[in-house]
Design a protein around this nucleic acid. Structure first.
Length: 290
DNA sequence: GAGCCGTGGGA
DNA sequence: TTCCCAAGGCT
C-alpha cells in the first residue's frame, strides 16, 4: 500500500535523518526503550545528555533494577514528569524478573510494562526489533492529518480512523515498515512541524492534501489552555527539586521555604508521597524513595 | 474521556 | 512577554 509516499519519504529520511545515539547500529533494545520513555512530551535536545549518562550508568535493565527507585528519580534530573523515572525503574525490575533481563519484543508484553502505552510499545517493537506496527505519535498524526486529511492538525484525541489509516499505509515487509515508521516521524519532527512547517523542504509536497487545499488554518476548538504558574504541578516540581539536589534526607523546613501557600504545599507533598516519588521518614525528614 | 502530571526553549 | 508545545500514559 502506500506507493506514492513510500519512496520519497524513505529517500528523504536516508538523506536527512538525525544522527541520534538510540538509532545507532550498536543501540540496544534497552537503549531504545529508555529513549522512548524520556522522549514522551520532551524535546530531543533535553533528552540527549540525560540518556547518555543514564546508559553509561545502567547499560542493562538489571543494572537499574538493582538500584533504589530514588536513584532513577535523581538521575532523571529536570526532564519533567518524574513519575516516568519511577515507571522506567519499575519496567527495569519487571524485565529483570519476568523476562530474564532482556527487553521483550512482543507488543503485548511491552504494553504490560509500567509507563509503556500503545505508542511506546509500538515504537520499541518497531525501532528495536524491526517489527511491523503502526507507530502513531503526535508527529505522525500531524503528518497524516495534513498529507491525507487536508487539515492542519489532527483531532485532540486519537481516533480509530487514524489507527486504521496508519495501518493501511504500512509496507508489508516488516523491516521496511519499521523504516517507514521512523521516517514519517522524523518528517513530522523536522519538516512537517506544528508551528511553522517547512513545506519547501517536503519530499511529498506534490501529494499533500493540505497543500492542495491551500493550507487552511485549523478551525476546530482551542487545542490548549493549561497555565502552569501557581499550579500543584509547579509546586510538586519545586519540592522534588529540593530532594533531588540534596545529598540525603532533608528537614521539613527545607521544603517549606520553596512554596508559600501551606495548604497547597501539603497537598502537593502528600501527592508526591502517594505517587512514590517522596519517602517520609520516621524522624520527620523526607527523602527520595529507597 | 477529561484532567492531571514538569520543564524550558523558541516564536 | 506570553504563549505554545515536545517521540504519552494513567486514572
Amino acid at each position: 500500500m502506500n506507493s506514492i509516499y513510500l519512496d520519497p519519504i524513505l529517500g528523504w529520511y536516508e538523506a536527512n535523518a538525525r544522527d541520534l545515539p538510540w538509532r545507532a547500529d550498536d543501540a540496544t533494545p534497552w537503549g531504545v526503550l529508555v529513549s522512548e520513555i524520556m522522549l514522551q512530551q520532551t524535546p530531543v535536545a533535553r533528552v540527549l545528555p540525560v540518556w547518555q549518562t543514564w546508559m553509561r550508568r545502567w547499560p542493562a535493565p538489571a543494572d537499574l533494577a538493582a538500584e533504589p527507585s530514588g536513584e532513577a528519580v535523581r538521575a532523571w534530573g529536570r526532564l519533567g514528569y518524574p513519575r516516568r523515572a519511577l515507571r522506567l525503574h519499575g519496567s527495569a525490575r519487571a524485565i529483570t524478573e519476568r523476562h530474564g533481563g532482556a527487553v521483550p519484543s512482543a507488543h503485548e508484553e511491552l504494553l504490560a510494562l509500567p509507563g509503556i502505552g500503545s505508542y511506546t510499545a509500538a515504537a520499541v517493537a518497531s525501532f528495536a526489533f524491526r517489527q511491523r506496527h503502526a507507530v502513531l505519535d503526535t508527529n505522525v498524526r500531524r503528518v497524516l492529518a495534513r498529507l491525507l486529511g487536508g487539515v492542519e492538525y489532527p483531532p485532540k484525541s486519537q481516533t480509530r480512523a487514524e489507527v486504521r489509516l496508519a495501518e493501511s499505509l504500512l509496507p508489508l515487509d516488516p523491516p521496511t515498515a519499521a523504516r517507514w515508521a521512523v521516517a514519517v516521524m522524523e518528517l513530522g519532527a523536522l519538516v512537517c512541524t506544528a508551528r511553522t512547517p517547512r513545506c519547501a523542504d517536503c519530499p511529498v509536497i506534490a501529494s499533500c492534501a493540505w497543500q492542495r487545499a491551500g493550507r487552511p488554518a485549523y478551525d476546530g476548538p482551542p487545542r490548549r489552555g493549561q497555565t502552569y504558574a501557581g499550579t500543584d504541578r509547579q509546586c510538586r516540581g519545586r519540592l522534588l527539586a529540593v530532594l533531588r539536589d540534596a545529598e540525603g534526607p532533608v528537614e521539613k523546613p527545607a521544603l517549606d521555604v520553596v512554596w508559600s501557600d501551606a495548604v497547597q504545599r501539603e497537598r502537593a507533598l502528600d501527592a508526591l508521597v502517594a505517587d512514590g516519588l517522596v519517602d517520609p521518614l520516621q524522624d520527620g525528614r523526607y527523602a527520595l524513595p529507597v
